[in-house]
Design a protein around this nucleic acid. Structure first.
Lengths: 145, 145
DNA sequence: TTAGTTGTAACTATTGACATTACAACTAAT
DNA sequence: ATTAGTTGTAATGTCAATAGTTACAACTAA
């Protein structure tokens, strides 16, 4: 199972917003055309990013822009914004293990710290990369075409 | 999105196999009762673990056992055994970004190394934990009940 | 031969992701 | 005030993966 494409799409969208901000109004249509998905998918995604304080979206006049400095937005911020956070855990525990079995009633306690450490390792790595880093890579690559 | 419960169920199953190996034949029925899922789900899972060389399952006579030393089985081995590996990547990239857009045609190149680093961080953490570690925790917790 | 078990196919239900259509709400420009 | 362009969102549909269930052939050991 994989992390949904919303995450990579979100990064793509943010790079677009930053790249085109001086040239044109960055509408959901423009973003949809770059990502190659339906504009409604982009609008829903922008709502999630907006709720997380990452972007501003203007109703009516239209257009999206970054809501805070690029170096203050980490990949983890984006991940948390677009992936179901109520779930909280990266791992899915089977419900209702048999409490009459010594393994069944303790498996949660046995695994929880280990699973948390794994998830933390991933999240720490995500936290260490900002959109500023990504933009710097992107400018280099696009500039060298 | 979450990693499927097959992963935590697999660990649960391995802990059961090791815990009960001297007391009884560890059948899919027994495992199913501890995990509290259908026995067929367990059998399918055991097939995946068997294909990965982690367990042996006896047809006919019945019963599952570990196929190699506990300290040679890491959580990553289990993860790779039960999660779709063809997919390979933890992250799901949107297909067909627009090649006419400078961002669209470069987004893959921009993100790939970053995403690999994140996945590696997770896998390294998984690699550092063996079933021997988990069993040692489990024995402590179960013994102290 | 039989009882117990695994291996697997077939079918179903459920869930989440994603696509699509439609339209109300809103803003700015004219 | 009207209009054109845009966002916000509901409703609906499709698809894939997970997981539950039934059924039964294949196998082994007693």
């Amino acid at each position: 199972m994989q992390i949904s494409s919303r995450f990579t799409i979100a990064v793509h969208v943010l790079v677009c917003i930053e790249t085109f901000k001086n040239d044109r109004k960055v509408t959901s249509e423009l973003l949809a055309s770059s990502v190659n998905v339906n504009a409604v998918v982009i609008r829903r995604l922008l709502q999630q990013l907006k709720a997380a304080g990452i972007v501003n979206v203007a109703r009516g006049s239209g257009g999206a822009e970054m809501a805070k400095p690029l170096e203050d937005i980490t990949l983890l911020d984006i991940y948390n914004a677009v992936e179901c956070v109520e779930c909280g855990s990266l791992f899915h525990f089977h419900e209702n293990p048999n409490a009459l079995c010594p393994v069944g009633r303790n498996i949660h306690a046995v695994m929880d710290t280990r699973l948390d450490k794994i998830q933390n390792a991933m999240e720490n790595e995500m936290k260490s990369v900002t959109i500023a880093d990504i933009m710097s890579d992107a400018e280099k690559i696009i500039g060298s075409e």
